[in-house]
Design a protein around this nucleic acid. Sequence first.
DNA 1: ATCGCATTTATTGTCCACAATTTTATTTTT
DNA 2: AAAAATAAAATTGTGGACAATAAATGCGAT
Lengths: 226, 226
Amino acid sequence: MYKTSKHRIPVYESLRQAIIEQALKPGVKLPEDSIGETFGVSRTIVRNALVRLDAEGLVEIQPNRGASVAEPTIEEAYDIFDMRQCLEREVVQRLCRIDPKPVVKALRLHLEEEQKVLGKDSTRSIRLAGEFHILLAELTGSKILENYVNEIVSRCSLIVARFAQAHSAECGVEEHAEIIEAIAQGDAERAVSVMHKHLHSVQDRALLNPEDQQEENISDILSRYR
Amino acid sequence: MYKTSKHRIPVYESLRQAIIEQALKPGVKLPEDSIGETFGVSRTIVRNALVRLDAEGLVEIQPNRGASVAEPTIEEAYDIFDMRQCLEREVVQRLCRIDPKPVVKALRLHLEEEQKVLGKDSTRSIRLAGEFHILLAELTGSKILENYVNEIVSRCSLIVARFAQAHSAECGVEEHAEIIEAIAQGDAERAVSVMHKHLHSVQDRALLNPEDQQEENISDILSRYR
DNA sequence: ATCGCATTTATTGTCCACAATTTTATTTTT
DNA sequence: AAAAATAAAATTGTGGACAATAAATGCGAT
């Protein structure tokens, strides 16, 4: 899972980014052949990338049927968000235990960036919002916590792609500011609470939207039309 | 990461088990050729298994230099154990929130098994002890939490293999019993505290042992001899 | 026209070959 | 004899081949 391991394979990174940024939507097939062609590499490389992505939960490989972008169910979605709450609670708790100076400085720098592109570049905005959470984890100094948060933030992006309507699920920049504030004051209780609320609102925007009806089964939908 | 994905590859499972049970010690090289030969498959299969294990942190792949069993540093070891504390705290907290009946029943059944082989089959004993923790996670009903715990327990086995002296790091069966008891009573606070102590003792047996000096660098050791 | 069946096409699973790189062994030089 | 340079062996990285499986297409029967 460390730097050396990704083998500097651009195909892994590209696929990952494409999925996170919702260019590749859940359920889309990922044929080894065509992907290899677009990247100018053989199936061998693509296959390894897909195996990795499958291990991360972003891709689902079905034996003899190939890979496609994972389609988390609504139950899995809740499961993943719960886990995220747990991990990010740990993150802010740890951050409140260490010297806030460098932490807050790094966070404010990032926040500025977020505010700068607000409303301008939506794709970049979403990416930065996700990276804020990863930065938080990184600042704890725990590699493994950082990895887990990184992974779970990606999977949440996938969930948003599956269930939320367009753009409805961006992180609120003001909420990020609040979190930084709490950390600056070393107020763990408040930091945890703000983070909790923040994540909950992200979750709600993703999962509590009218289009949830998409997820009903077909006969339920049709029964309303007869 | 789900059932379908492992492709029923015995080589992945076997390598994983061998590493966890310390048959393959940290640092041991894992050449694709010879592994493929012993399993009667080609390097392709082995390679995919190694990629997966690398993603899990059990194996380290260095570009152009092949794979070897991961060698967690002492810092990583502490990092991983901290993370484990966080995850297993979450596990017992969740278990204390749900109906204890079926949970306790499953746990007691497992505990019996542990007691049965106690002192008889050391390998099996260690395996069961690890599986107890995975069972706990499984009983929360959260697939992702189960996966994380599964992963981190494996990595802790690796740490034990690296730092502890033989057999010094088995889980105490009585402590498992105590955890079950706390869950049965729905006493979250106590369950968390017992679990914490339990994991801490496992950690200590692994990391607080005299042979830590193995980890000093060569000149430190030699300086004592001149 | 629709359904079921056979055939074709596409895609995956696996192996092997060959080039690139690293590691080990040997020879040469100082 | 030690170090450096060279050669040989082993191992990895990647591409492509071929069989096995699944998906798509076309055909004939009802």
